[in-house]
């Protein structure tokens, strides 16, 4: 899954515009990722702050 480091995030919306699933929403200072996310991790590459990370789901 994709995790957001809220302490690092600059809430700019770059990830929202690049998400092919339209799975990300930015509300004020909060990034929310919904169940349409398929872990493609494009958002982690476009984030200016490096606040997004793909972490392995726990089995």
């Amino acid at each position: 899954m994709i995790t957001v480091n809220r302490y690092r995030c600059g809430y700019c919306g770059a990830c929202v515009g690049a998400c092919p699933q339209n799975a990300i929403d930015l509300i004020e200072t909060f990034i929310e990722i919904d169940s349409n996310c398929n872990n493609c991790s494009i958002c982690t590459k476009v984030c200016p702050m490096g606040a997004l990370e793909l972490v392995k789901d726990e089995e």
């Binding site: 770059a14 515009g17 690049a18 998400c19 092919p20 339209n22 590459k45 476009v46 984030c47």
Partner: peptide, 10 residues
């Protein structure tokens, strides 16, 4: 409107 990585300046 999705931006490809080659079409976005971060």
């Amino acid at each position: 409107t999705t931006l490809k990585l080659k079409d976005v300046e971060t």
